[in-house]
Design a protein around this nucleic acid. Structure first.
Lengths: 151, 151
DNA sequence: CCCGTCAGTTTGATATGCAAACCTTGACGG
DNA sequence: CCGTCAAGGTTTGCATATCAAACTGACGGG
């Protein structure tokens, strides 16, 4: 019996960690250079108790690390680990989708050299642009195929 | 006063639409070719009432469209719109992150031509690989900069 | 007639989310 | 001293959301 219901899948696994209402916004703020509890609370709009709980969970999940920047009274801020930094590409893609479909005009400008950044997906192996037609999926775990559980 | 608290941002806007526990798993299943209520319920593990509510919301948000495949008794299935299809790249990136950080070994294999797909980000404008150091951000809305509200 | 399928809806207990107030340590001002 | 303020949370009390499981209603087959 699997630990969780539903198809075993890395997307589900990822969402288990960062798929709540505030995690990605927290990571966004840390990427933006806002490392302190108060800054993150203000800029995300998250309730303080939720934020405290999520920060704790993200530290436990290895996405953030907590650094004490003064000892007395104890004050700490939050920095990205490698796993956290790699969420940057998730945020980029999500931002582009949001720019197109969720807002009227992009509220945040992202410059790349001297032009606006627009991310595109390529296959890192062959360098080709990724198109749905060139992709084939299959399940690697017993008891599942693409249609669902086989048992 | 803004409609929602927190920084105005496309990521927040996107999460407003697909940032709940089930939406991306629903889209995943539809991409996988599972279009019916029962299939999606079984393969995501979502409770049926939540699923019904999310499907309704995703249709309203223009991510899915509902098609009646028989009239009596009325039965419909769900298909992706353009906006929904474009969530594919979000899922790809999220899957890669999950493969690296959320699971022990990738449960789903994605083949591109004759090799395993690994997505990489490039700038669609200049073609260069995207690196954090080449990126500069700024807010386009009054009252906010990268540090937070200026008011 | 009875059973099964499908797409939801209803129900009732439980968990989660929220805003706001509160706590603690210390710095600063008078 | 005394009051006030800042930071980083924690506590409280209430409202809402979520869940599993049972139910509905329209069919179709045997």
């Amino acid at each position: 019996m699997p630990a969780v219901a539903g198809r075993p899948c890395s997307v589900a696994g990822a969402l288990e960690i960062i798929g709540d209402r505030w995690s990605l916004l927290i990571v966004r703020e840390v990427i933006f250079g806002n490392h302190r509890f108060g800054e993150i609370a203000r800029n995300t709009g998250a309730p303080r108790d939720r934020l405290a709980a999520r920060l704790k969970a993200l530290v436990a999940a290895g996405i953030l690390e907590q650094r004490e920047y003064q000892a007395s009274p104890p004050r700490s801020d939050y920095h990205l680990t490698r796993a956290g930094r790699e969420l940057g590409s998730v945020l980029q893609v999500l931002r582009e989708w949001g720019d197109r479909w969720a807002v009227e005009s992009p509220p945040v400008s992202v410059r790349h050299h001297d032009h606006e950044l627009r991310v595109g997906s390529v296959c890192a192996v062959c360098g080709e642009r990724v198109r749905a037609a060139d992709i084939a999926r299959s399940m690697r775990v017993d008891g599942w195929d693409m249609a669902g559980p086989t048992g």
